[in-house]
Simulated assay, not measured.
Amino acid sequence: MFAKLKQRWQDTRTIMKLSLDAEQRALREGQQHPGAEHYTLAALDLPDGSARRVFARIGADPEAYRAALANRHTAALSAIGLAAANANVTPAGASSAADGLAPPAEPTLLFDAQPSGQTLMQSLPELQRRLPAPLCGAHVLLAAAAMAHSAAGRAFKAIDIDLQALGSAAEAELRAAIPS
């Protein structure tokens, strides 16, 4: 019983870290709520390292993923006639001179996300039931791999990451982490 409570506490801490990081990334981009791409980037930076190990399993570079999102963001801004150098908007995961300043809006205690972010976060409990490893970045990548039409999915495709291979690698990482 104590082990289950301890694991739930750790999973809650992981969700909080993931959500806060995703929300901060969205705010730096000038978006009010995080999408699946923000949660995916946050997963790559979780201390458990599982998302990075998933990328290593498929020979992918997390920085190429960050760049693909930044390029998508820059292209979207250009398409509507805005320069990417806008001081209030930076690509996902990118640093800016404004990083040391307060975010445009105060993060909330209850997380509100874009539909893609909501879908990703809502799928995590089922994924964890199916693959009962402690909640980690690999769960997030497994969820994102099922979202081909999200910004996260399009960024994976932009750097030639096969979503099925990503999902399989995430499952293998999670199976290796299931306590015996």
Rank of each mutant, 00 (worst) to 15 (best):
Q7E: 15
E29L: 02
Q24I: 09
S50C: 11
Q7G: 02
I58H: 05
H38A: 10
Y39M: 06
R52T: 11
R13I: 04
F2Y: 05
T14Q: 05
A51C: 12
A26D: 04
A36F: 04
D48E: 08
G30S: 07
D21H: 12
H38I: 02
E37D: 14
G30C: 08
A42S: 11
R8F: 08
L44W: 08
L44K: 06
R25S: 08
M16C: 07
R57P: 03
E29C: 12
W9L: 15
A26K: 05
R25P: 00
L41W: 12
F2R: 15
H38F: 01
L20F: 06
E23Y: 00
G49C: 03
A22G: 08
T40H: 03
A43G: 02
M16H: 14
K4W: 12
K4L: 14
K6P: 00
H33N: 12
I15V: 14
D48G: 08
T12A: 15
F55I: 03
S50L: 12
H38E: 09
T14I: 13
E23P: 00
A42Q: 03
L41V: 04
Q31T: 00
R28Y: 02
F2M: 11
F55Q: 01
A3M: 14
A36C: 14
Y39S: 08
D11Y: 05
A26H: 04
K17V: 08
L41F: 10
F2H: 11
Q10W: 07
A26M: 09
L20C: 01
D48W: 00
R28F: 00
M16T: 11
R28W: 07
R25K: 09
E23I: 06
E23N: 12
I58Y: 10
I58G: 01
D21L: 12
S19G: 15
M16A: 13
L27M: 11
E37V: 09
K4N: 13
S50T: 15
I15P: 00
S50H: 15
R13T: 05
A51I: 11
L46F: 03
K6V: 09
D11W: 10
D21I: 02
Q31C: 05
R57C: 08
S50M: 12
R28T: 01
Q10E: 11
A22P: 03
Q7K: 14
L44V: 08
S50W: 03
E23Q: 15
K4E: 14
A56L: 06
P34A: 11
T12V: 01
R8T: 02
Y39I: 05
D21R: 13
Q24Y: 15
Y39W: 01
Q10V: 02
M16R: 15
A36G: 11
A22H: 03
L44F: 14
A36D: 06
A42N: 01
D45M: 09
R28M: 03
G30I: 06
Q24W: 06
G30A: 04
K4C: 05
S19I: 04
R13W: 10
H33R: 14
W9R: 13
R25N: 10
P34G: 10
A22Q: 06
A43S: 05
Q10L: 13
R52H: 09
A22M: 08
G30E: 07
V54E: 01
P34Y: 03
K17E: 12
